[in-house]
């Protein structure tokens, strides 16, 4: 391929530097590779899940420069220089992120396939809106589907994380009899 202008040009196997979870990776990507493909199949970070790969389900959500995005709809070649956070980037060793703790306490994970994308969405959201209302939480996660939970305990987990800063025991009384 020859450059058609003097702009940035990436031939199909051009090397690209991706910053993922603070670590730089230089690798050759093909023009049609999505960020999801590169994260899962090249960097082997399989915590990011592939669901519909069609922008319909949100499983592949990652943070790009702090914003939640569908990795399945992004060309990797366009992500050079951007800061990417995947679920693997949240915990520090065995110390979990408060949202991860809240997820566990609220029982917000069942099959777990939506969990990474949901947690990342919630992280970006709480950083922007630290004390959200329930309605705001619902809107914030409305781009990721979940069939297991009916979203109820996911909403609970996000509110729990927001209200505690550091997570507290789950408010089980709300629904127990």
């Amino acid at each position: 391929m020859t450059p058609a202008g003097d702009g940035i040009e990436r031939a199909p196997e051009a090397p690209l530097t991706l910053r993922v979870n603070g670590e730089e990776h230089t690798l050759a990507v093909r023009g049609h590779d999505t960020l999801l493909t590169v994260i899962r199949e090249r960097l082997l970070l399989t915590g990011t899940k592939a669901g519909c790969t069609n922008g319909d389900c949100g499983l592949c959500t990652v943070l790009v420069d702090g914003e939640a995005m569908y990795a399945c709809l992004m060309f990797a070649a366009r992500c050079g220089g951007r800061d990417i956070t995947t679920i693997e980037g949240l915990a520090r060793g065995a110390v979990l992120h408060p949202l991860q703790e809240a997820w566990i306490q609220a029982g917000a994970t069942q099959c777990g396939i939506c969990t990474p994308g949901m947690i990342l969405t919630a992280k970006a959201f709480l950083e922007r809106v630290p004390r959200p209302s329930e309605v705001q939480v619902r809107e914030a996660i409305s781009g990721t589907l979940c069939r297991c939970t009916g979203y109820m305990k996911i909403i609970e987990a996000i509110l729990l994380a927001a209200n505690s800063g550091a997570p507290q025991p789950a408010p089980a009384a709300a629904s127990g009899h």
């Binding site: 202008g5 003097d6 702009g7 940035i8 040009e9 199909p12 093909r30 023009g31 049609h32």
Partner: peptide, 16 residues
């Protein structure tokens, strides 16, 4: 998507 898509990122409108 068939392979071989290339990405260009022009800086000027004329070029784009």
């Amino acid at each position: 998507i068939s392979p071989g898509v290339r990405h260009v990122r022009p800086r000027e409108y004329q070029e784009a």
